[in-house]
């Protein structure tokens, strides 16, 4: 598969989850594992441009696919507009859920124009944050949506 623009070819046990492959085989530990029940969304990455939970996918299912993780969205030292917006709007506290939030939000903003606050809150159904109460995350996404449009 292609991960963040680089070709990645490895042999792994059949039951290797994509998140395990990213973290343990490729060392891309920005993608987090926050639960064991596929609910938290900390592990969200893009598979062929769509957001997926990398904990609920075998690495083998992504054979030949293009994967983008949190490590692959900045342009050198310039943060992605979504990352910058989370930074500026204090869209995180402990930061554990942030990689998943950012990857989920990028797809939400890319696929939908003129998002309302309600759209954003509903769009974050698959992401759980236990620190922020979501308010600043929503503000961050609103700010990024303006810059990305």
């Amino acid at each position: 598969m292609n991960v963040n623009g680089n070709s990645a070819t490895h042999e792994v046990p059949d039951n290797t989850l994509l998140v395990t492959f990213l973290r343990e085989t490729l060392g891309l530990t920005g993608t987090h594992v926050g639960c064991d029940t596929s609910q938290c969304g900390a592990c969200i990455v893009h598979l062929n441009g769509e957001s997926v939970k990398s904990c609920s996918l075998f690495a083998a299912q992504a054979d030949g696919a293009t994967i983008t993780t949190i490590e692959g969205i900045a342009d050198g030292d310039t943060l992605h507009p979504m990352q910058q917006a989370f930074h500026e709007n204090h869209g995180l506290q402990c930061g554990f859920c942030t990689p998943g939030m950012v990857m989920s939000a990028i797809e939400l903003v890319t696929k939908n124009k003129n998002l309302t606050e309600r759209d954003i809150r509903e769009g974050l159904e698959g992401n759980i944050c236990r620190c922020t109460g979501y308010h600043n995350i929503v503000k961050s996404i609103q700010a990024a949506a303006e810059k990305m449009s």
């Binding site: 059949d14 039951n15 989850l17 064991d36 029940t37 596929s38 904990c55 609920s56 996918l57 075998f58 083998a60 299912q61």
Partner: peptide, 26 residues
């Protein structure tokens, strides 16, 4: 059989099923 895996894979992670073979239909 594995379709989207949104139930099967979480079930496997919880060790609630132990199939010897997963056949992806994608």
């Amino acid at each position: 059989f594995l379709a989207g895996g949104m139930t099967l894979i979480p079930t496997l992670k919880q060790r609630l099923a132990s199939p010897d073979l997963i056949i992806d239909l994608s």
